[in-house]
Design a protein around this nucleic acid. Structure first.
Lengths: 111, 111
DNA sequence: TGCCAACATAGATGTATGTCGAACACCAAG
DNA sequence: CTTGGTGTTCGACATACATCTATGTTGGCA
């Protein structure tokens, strides 16, 4: 089921030193994934859901069709931000561990 | 010169509660702006430059033409992430105050 | 076995975006 | 005022992307 390439601890704070081209390439994928309003809502719906995970049926009410939701969840998976698991009839998404920490570190003001 | 709409303190951590549609719309613009490798490098070049600011001539070596650099800097400005100021011959860009803090808060693991 | 619900994939389509070269605006020196 | 350097804007173009409808696939249940 096409699992994400690891997002990795990646990089120091953006204020510490310029990113290399490769670092920027990898890191931009995460930001890009969150750069769509629908995906950002889906991500926050999963991240804030009790237990840290949510089934698609819990988060499908974001104003677009069901295939579109599925499409965006796939993008988030491919960016390494979410993982998915099927349990019976439902598919559950959760935030990939360490992703929030990694992105938070990037944006740490190293002042 | 088309100044940015304020990016605002905006939102609580993504893990605290789901974003509303409006919040997501506004916030996604910031992530989107950083969702391109070239822009991400430009941003980190400015953010990590001594004095917290850099002139375009200091950061133009990212592998694309100079008009393209200018185009991306404009996008970053419009997203509220950078501000620009002309001093004599050169134009200086700096990170908009409070932007890093705001984005960092969004990604705070509220665990 | 057959059916329904939950998600995913496929294909089509309009719009947004990244890129470039060319032309323009601004400023400092001669 | 003219020249040269710095940066922006313009127009064109190819690609990427968000969205939809239609169709597949998977699993529970009668």
């Amino acid at each position: 089921m096409l699992e994400p390439e690891a997002v990795a601890p990646c990089c120091p704070p953006l204020t510490e030193r310029p990113l290399t081209a490769e670092e920027a390439e990898r890191t931009a994928k995460m930001f890009k994934a969150l750069g769509d309003p629908v995906r950002l809502r889906l991500f926050s719906l999963v991240a804030s859901h009790e237990g840290g995970e949510a089934c698609v049926c819990d988060i499908s009410d974001v104003g677009v069709s069901q295939p579109t939701v599925s499409h965006h969840l796939k993008k988030l998976r491919e960016a390494g931000l979410l993982t998915s698991e099927r349990r019976g009839t439902w598919v559950y998404y959760k935030v990939a561990p360490s992703v929030l920490a990694a992105m938070g570190q990037l944006l740490t003001a190293a002042d």
